[in-house]
Write a protein that binds this DNA or RNA. Structure first.
Length: 649
RNA sequence: GCCCAUGUAGCGCAGGGGUAGCGCAUUCCCUUGGUAAGGGAAAGGUCACGAGUUCAAAUCUCGUCAUGGGCUCCA
């Protein structure tokens, strides 16, 4: 019998018989490896253990130690979940069950049944039964597609039919679930690979149920999706679950109530935020910083109205393209619109004067409050709301200037986000179908944006054809505590609005030219940015942003007088400070200040009065000893000025 | 907008066909305490809103609004 040669990762090779499988190879290498082998990488493709080896294959046996196998485990667990669901609901039709970032899901169509969380434990129970059956996963090539389609049709598996028809020409495979006696107990049309046997599934949990449209299209039927996760060990699963719990504690909606930051009331309306005094302080500080940075970078700051006659939005095209998101009102037979964007107003300010190439670029910025009627299910805390304030700016420049301007904006965004220690992902969206402007300017713009990103050494993803019809854009995505990403900063070129409003400037040669317009935001919106900032700092704002920077805590009533003088000194130094002279124990006051995440607590007792000191407790480090009050004020002032972390020590 | 769940005092929660309870917070009294909760008392709710079933609804049913998890959308 002839043998074939297999190359192993360590550079050695091995002679094995023909029709040897990966599993055979693993066993041949060592019995131990055979036991723990999960899958293999053959010539960079990940395959099942029962794949037959070919001559000169480069083979790496994968075990649970290899990162690539976690998805295999999760996807295989999805199969077990689907099987369990079909055992409990025999009329359930299965759709797709891919892995996602931290787990997997499977979509079902279960006629006359709506799953609720209560069902999850039942399904988990059934899954455990299946796992105990030690079912094997066996790959099986579908040679007769038509026959299989007929079979699916008999079972009513309409979603699988649709998928199979699509993949008919791509060597479709079926995975068979076989029990100990070798009988086929379940099967699923699937690309694989899978773990060899259900016994590898040791730690999984079903997390939630949700609706999801078939193929993600809202015109299609809504299916029932179960989200779940799996890990190789119970410890890893538990660690993941605790991490989720910890993340939930940072949720800005939770902290918003706990720290008295904001509220949203039914009487006002969904998606309309009431900023409480505490969060208003944070916003004021950030807005001051924003204004300072804009002046420094030669922006003009403007104010514009919240409403405008409908006519303006005809010119801008919003009435046509954005209608379902706009609030309309009628007063004295005149139609008005609550502004969903600031750009038309900035354009009108541009129009109030004549510009030449000499006075461009013109950079116009506004903290502009806009209102958009979002679909009800889209709202989310402060990160997706109906009324919000954009830190908006529009830059009017010549075609020779916009690349340079984009560079400056990228710097501005990067500087700002770095200052807040925030990480982000960058996406570049390019020319879609039905674009405005010329091919030439699009090419120039896209190349310019790419160059700017590359010069800055920012890694980015390209969303081909995902740009707005009026121009390409760069989006900066921020992550929230639970791992959801939100669009923050964005830079959008616009070749359309300047034409609609017939904007002009005089070129060197005296000709009238149309300027390029750039829309950009740095924070995105104050609501979303500060919402994410709450989670980023877990509510413990650095001193320059903290609603209260220090609290003075007299131990007993006889210390109140001295505490008052300390309090007054801090106030005179323009610090945000409170005096807690309630008749409560010092421990009680410290606990409360700590829970309110106030950066510094100044404890005053007999010793401090005697020595004319304050005892400083930092929210992070605890008691850091006594200090002269002026010394404390100076170092806190410095900390605020440098926007630093806790540096008083 | 769609699917599922939820809505009880300022906050966090329990209860559940016979007109409501706990903890914290609040107010008052006592206590004056050295680095994360001192003790006591009082006050506080038409159980989201509207309709229906019932002798009786906070509890069951339907609708509306809102919130949560997702999907879709996001110029």
């Amino acid at each position: 019998m002839s043998e074939i040669k297999i190359n192993l990762p360590d550079g050695s090779s091995m002679e094995v018989p023909q029709s040897f499988t990966v599993a055979d190879l693993a066993n041949k290498i060592s019995e131990g490896l055979g036991r723990v082998a999960v899958a293999a990488k053959i010539n960079e493709n990940i395959v099942d253990l029962n794949t037959i080896l070919k001559n000169d294959d480069n083979v790496k046996i994968l075990t649970s130690k290899d990162a690539e196998t976690l998805d295999i485990l999760r996807h295989s667990t999805a199969h077990v979940m689907a099987q369990a669901v079909q055992r409990i609901y025999p009329n359930a039709k299965i759709a797709i069950g891919p892995t996602i970032e931290n787990g997997f899901y499977y979509d079902f169509d279960i006629p006359d049944t709506s799953l609720s969380v209560d069902e999850l434990s039942k399904i988990e129970e059934q899954m455990n039964i299946i796992i105990k059956e030690n079912q094997t996963f066996e790959r099986h090539e579908i040679t007769n597609v038509q026959e299989k389609i007929t079979e699916f049709r008999e079972k009513g598996e309409i979603y699988k039919i649709e998928l199979l028809m699509e993949y008919a020409s791509q060597n479709p495979t079926l995975y068979l679930g076989k029990n100990k006696d070798g009988n086929i107990v379940w099967n699923d049309f699937c690309r694989g690979p899978h773990i060899p046997n259900t016994k590898f599934i040791k730690a999984f949990k079903l997390l939630s149920v949700a609706g999801a449209y078939w193929r993600g299209d809202e015109k299609n039927k809504m299916l029932q999706r179960i989200y779940a996760t799996a890990f190789w060990t119970k410890d890893e699963l538990n660690e993941y679950l605790t991490r989720i719990e910890e993340a939930e504690k940072r949720d800005h909606r939770k902290l918003g109530t706990q720290l008295d930051l904001f509220s949203i009331r039914e009487e006002v309306g969904a998606g309309l935020v009431l900023w409480h005094p505490n969060l208003s302080v944070v916003r004021q500080m950030i807005e001051d910083y924003w204004r300072y940075e804009h002046r420094k970078r030669d922006y003009e700051i403007v104010y514009t109205p919240h409403i405008a006659k409908s006519q303006l939005w005809d010119i801008s095209g919003h009435n046509e393209h954005f209608r379902e998101n706009m609030f309309y009102m009628q007063v004295e037979e005149q139609d008005y619109v609550l502004k969903p964007m600031n750009c038309p107003f900035h354009i009108l300010i541009y129009q109030a004067k004549r510009y030449s190439y000499r006075s461009l670029p013109l950079r116009m910025a506004e903290l502009g409050t806009v209102y958009r009627n979002e679909r009800s299910g889209a709202l989310h805390g402060m990160t997706r709301v109906k009324g919000f304030t954009q830190d908006d700016a529009h830059i009017f420049c010549t075609q020779d200037q916009f690349v340079d301007e984009v560079n400056k904006i990228i710097d501005f965004i990067d500087d700002t986000l770095t200052m807040f220690d925030m990480t982000y992902e960058v996406e570049l969206s390019t020319r879609p179908e039905g674009f405005a402007g010329t091919l030439e300017i699009w090419d120039k713009a896209e190349a310019g944006l790419k160059k700017a990103l590359e010069d800055k050494k920012l890694s980015y993803v390209i969303n081909e054809g995902d740009g707005a019809f009026y121009g390409p854009k760069i989006d900066f995505k921020l992550k929230d505590a639970i791992g959801r990403t939100w669009q923050g900063a964005t830079i959008q070129l616009d070749f359309n609005l300047p034409i609609r409003f017939n904007l002009k400037y005089t070129e060197k040669d005296g000709s009238m030219q149309t300027p390029v317009m750039i829309h950009r935001v740095i924070f995105g919106t104050m609501e979303r940015f500060i919402g994410i900032l709450i989670e980023h700092y877990a509510g413990a704002f650095p001193a320059w942003l903290a609603p209260q920077q220090a609290v003075v805590i007299p131990i007993a009533d006889r210390h109140t007088e001295f505490a008052q003088s300390i309090y007054k000194k801090l106030r005179d130094a323009d610090l945000r400070v409170e005096l807690d002279d309630r008749s409560e124990s010092m421990n009680y006051k410290i606990r409360e200040a700590q829970n309110r995440k106030i950066p510094y607590m100044l404890v005053i007792g007999d010793k401090e009065i005697e020595a004319n000191y304050v005892a400083v407790r930092a929210r992070l480090k605890g008691d850091i000893g006594v200090k002269n009050i002026d010394e404390f004020i100076n170092s806190l002032k410095k900390e605020i000025e440098t926007k630093g972390k806790e540096i008083v020590n």
